[in-house]
């Protein structure tokens, strides 16, 4: 028995009505691992990620985070979510709150931390993503890249054990992608366990400990980025990589 996995997904199935999006996914992510998930749109990669913190309800299969079974309805999902950070493609900052208040809200209401302490954590978190000077600014005044960095700070403030990134740079103008990726690289170097759905091959090569290629609702191939990108075995992987180069 090796060290206990951070995330373990067993035979995950998910259907939307008659459409079966996930057809049996198994994946284990060790502590500190950065797993990049690639695949064409509609391959089920985002759905899989959203099942991990049960934003989507799996149709069948089991998911564990550390010792807790996410898919067990007796587990308090809010306790699990508080230590699983998630960042979305569309940022989803709360537009009625300043950057600082966005970060503070869950600290205050979920972790019940005092206002002073929450403010302290929020300011440190914003400094970590290089936005301490924007603490009192509303999201609408920030660029997409800045909004996404605030969203990362908001998730990190909860002190998560694992972070989920769902195509976080896809909605950004090309010149803003790097500032977000840099923050994520810093996180990976710091030892954060990360599941990253992305199309950024450069990022995957630099940072990922493992690349996972999904298509048709299953994992087709996985390995180190070098193995998957430079010497793909699966025909679908070859085809996909050929298209995005």
């Amino acid at each position: 028995m090796t060290e206990q996995a951070m995330v373990r997904i067993e035979d995950l199935h998910k259907s939307f009505g008659a459409l079966e999006v996930l057809k049996g996914v198994d994946l284990e992510v060790a502590r500190g691992e950065v797993v990049v998930i690639l695949g064409p749109s509609g391959s089920g990669k985002s759905t899989m990620l959203r099942c991990v913190n049960r934003l989507e309800e799996p149709t069948s299969g089991r998911i564990f985070i550390e010792n807790d079974e996410v898919t067990d309805h007796k587990t308090n999902i809010n306790h699990i979510r508080a230590r699983v950070g998630m960042v979305f493609q569309s940022f989803n900052l709360f537009p009625h709150l300043t950057a600082k208040s966005n970060v503070m809200l869950a600290l205050r209401k979920v972790k019940k931390i005092s206002k002073e302490e929450a403010e302290q954590i929020a300011l440190e978190g914003l400094a970590r993503v290089g936005l301490d000077d924007k603490a009192d600014v509303y999201p609408i005044m920030l660029s997409g890249g800045q909004q996404q960095r605030v969203a990362i700070a908001r998730a990190l403030a909860m002190d998560p054990h694992v972070m989920l990134f769902d195509e976080v740079t896809s909605a950004l103008d090309p010149e803003l992608v790097r500032e977000v990726l840099d923050v994520m690289k810093g996180l990976a170097k710091g030892g954060m366990t990360m599941l990253v759905v992305t199309h950024e091959m450069g990022f995957a090569r630099d940072v990922a400990s493992r690349a996972v290629f999904m298509d048709e609702g299953v994992i087709q191939e996985q390995g180190t980025p070098e193995e998957v990108f430079d010497n793909p075995q699966n025909e679908r992987t070859k085809d996909f990589l050929g298209h995005i180069r």
Binding site: N78, R81, A82, N92, L93, F94, V110, A151, A155, M158
Partner: peptide, 22 residues
């Protein structure tokens, strides 16, 4: 937008908290 509720829920808020504060 649905993303607002999802963001709030992903931070561990209950549906009630997400409604009240977000």
């Amino acid at each position: 937008s649905k993303g607002q509720l999802e963001a709030a829920r992903s931070l561990g808020m209950t549906t009630m908290q997400a409604m009240t504060y977000v």
